[in-house]
């Protein structure tokens, strides 16, 4: 699921069509992809595909939540001096498969400690920092690179990074967590659909699976994987059903502009034009009069291009 959302490119491309004051994302693959947009002065509505993703979007994008307080940092980011009892750890099945013993101790401690944080927004920031820490641990583990930072040090670093990340946010962010069938079209200037073509598991999806299980307090990765796949499948674009764009046409109904973004790999641009762009133009012909396809090269040796299809 490689998807590069180039927000500055998107806004530049639509700037001739309208003044953008509101943007709606019926789906987003990863919270940080919306960082640039959430720094602009407009209303940003995002629908998350899972409960844990909704929490990450709130914690990392909504500046009104503020940063994690120093008082809470001192209270809840303690160093574990002696190893915890492994048999009590609900994530013990992950030992040496995903995390080492010390990391598992901290994952157990951080999850439990967070329940004692009184303010929900602060708790979500603390948990959201764990997402980044898991990403750091898992990616180093996958490459067999030794992790140098101690867990409490990395937690401090991540919360510091979070404070820097949310500084200067201007967008009024609203996050929903609704199934695609329940989601109503938003009255926004611009609706953006990031397109995904495959639910093949990559490192980011594995991280989302592990985090989802951790946040729910169990070690059953298959359960989380099934849930996430079930949600994601609703957003998958299937080339073999070129006329099946009902969801897209329904959800852009109240927007002045619709934008579809995707990243291609191993398929030449002409094929995307034939198999995706033309059927979409046909599907949206009743709603919009103009369409424009923009492309950017990423790596020509493997036909990697980023695409932006606009309707106005």
């Amino acid at each position: 699921m490689t998807l590069r959302l180039q927000s500055a490119w998107l806004l530049e491309a639509v700037s001739d069509m309208a003044t953008i004051d509101s943007v709606f994302f019926p789906f987003i693959h990863r919270f940080s992809a919306l960082n640039w947009l959430s720094r602009r002065d407009f209303a940003l509505s995002v629908n998350a595909y899972s409960v844990s993703q909704a929490m990450l979007l709130r914690a990392w994008l909504d500046g009104s939540y503020g940063a994690f307080s120093d008082r809470n940092l001192q209270k809840f980011n303690q160093q574990i001096k002696n190893p915890l009892e492994l048999s009590m750890n609900p994530f013990r099945a992950w030992k040496d498969r995903l995390f080492d013993r010390q990391q598992l101790d901290y994952l157990f401690y951080w999850r439990e400690a967070a329940f004692e944080i009184e303010e929900e927004a602060q708790r979500e920031i603390f948990w959201a920092a764990v997402y980044q820490i898991m990403s750091y641990w898992l990616s180093n583990r996958a490459c067999e690179v030794e992790v140098v930072c101690q867990p409490d040090e990395i937690m401090g670093l991540m919360l510091n990074r979070h404070a820097e990340f949310i500084r200067g946010r201007e967008a009024r962010v609203s996050v929903t967590r609704l199934g695609l069938d329940e989601l109503a079209p938003a009255d926004t200037c611009l609706t953006v659909f990031p397109l995904v073509f495959s639910d093949e598991e990559n490192a980011e999806m594995t991280l989302q699976v592990v985090f989802d299980a951790w946040q729910n307090g169990h070690d059953d990765l298959e359960q989380s994987r099934r849930q996430i796949r079930m949600h994601l499948r609703k957003y998958l674009i299937d080339f073999s059903k070129p006329d099946d764009y009902y969801t897209i046409t329904r959800l852009v109904a109240n927007s002045k502009i619709a934008a579809l973004v995707w990243s291609g790999l191993d398929l030449p641009p002409a094929l995307y034009e034939q198999e995706l762009v033309r059927p979409l133009q046909k599907a949206l012909a009743g709603r919009y009069t103009k369409s424009q396809l923009l492309m950017k090269a990423v790596d020509r040796t493997c036909d990697a291009y980023d695409y932006l299809l606009l309707f106005s």
């Binding site: 490689t2 998807l3 590069r4 959302l5 180039q6 927000s7 500055a8 990863r30 940080s32 992809a33 960082n35 640039w36 980044q132 990403s135 750091y136 990616s139 990074r161 990340f165 990559n202 490192a203 980011e204 990243s263 990423v298 790596d299 990697a304």
Partner: peptide, 16 residues
């Protein structure tokens, strides 16, 4: 690599 860079906050192998 962790998605907290700029301008597009690409993460991991999304970055060429």
């Amino acid at each position: 690599w962790d998605g907290l860079g700029y301008p597009d906050n690409l993460k991991g192998e999304e970055i060429p």
